[in-house]
Amino acid sequence: MATAVETKGWTRDQMAARAAKELRDGYYVNLGIGIPTLVANNIPPGMTVTLQSENGMLGIGPFPYDDEVDPDLINAGKQTISELASSSYFDSAASFAMIRGGHIDLTVLGAMEVSEKGDIANWMIPGKMIKGMGGAMDLVAGVKKIIVVMEHVSKNGDPKFIPECTLPLTGKNVVDMIITDMCVFQRENHDSPFRLIELAPGVSRDEVREKTTAHYVD
C-alpha cells in the first residue's frame, strides 16, 4: 500500500517543468545555468523547440556518448554537448545579434533578487569575487520573454522577490514571469504589476504573502 506523502512546494525539477509549460512549438530558447538547464528535459513530446547556446550554436543536442566527446563542441556553461541534424554554428557576434535583436523567443534564468518592477540581480555580490555577467545582461535586454526560476527565499530565509533590488542589477524592468518553489508570478507588460497566478501544491496564499516583501496583485 502506498502511503500518501504530503507534498509542499515544487522541487527543482518541478520548477523546471513549470517553466517548460511556457514553451510553444517553434520557439527559439536560451536556457541559463542551473535549474533553467533542466527545462530542456521537459520539452513536451511533439513540440519543436530549438535551444540556443550563446557562444554560437542553434540546436543544442544532448550530452555526448563518452566516445563522441568533442572539445570543439561545448555549451555556454563550457560543458561538452552534441549536435542535432538541424544544428547550426555561428560566431559570438552573430549569436548576440540574435539575442539583442529580439529574435530569441524565451529565456529562463536564475536570480538572486527580483524587484516588484521587474528588475533582476543575478551577477555579483559586493565584497565577493566578481566572476562577471557573461551573457546575462544581453539576454535580459534582448529576449522577448524573460522567465526567472529561483527559490522563493534565500538560504538565510530572506525574501528574494522584493520592492527594490539591493544587489547590482543585471537589467532594469525586464522580467515577465517568476517561478519559485512556492508559486508563479506574472505580469502582462512592463508597466503592470506582478500577479500571483499559481500556487505550488500545499502552499497557501498567506504563506506566499508572508515570504514576499514585493508588492503584487493577489
Binding site: D91, S92, F96, A97, R100, I130, G132, G134, D138
Partner: peptide
C-alpha cells in the same frame, strides 16, 4: 578588469 557583457564585447570587436 573591465567587465563587459558578452554580446557587447563581441560587438565591440
Amino acid at each position: 578588469v573591465e567587465f563587459t557583457p558578452q554580446g557587447t564585447l563581441a560587438e565591440r570587436m
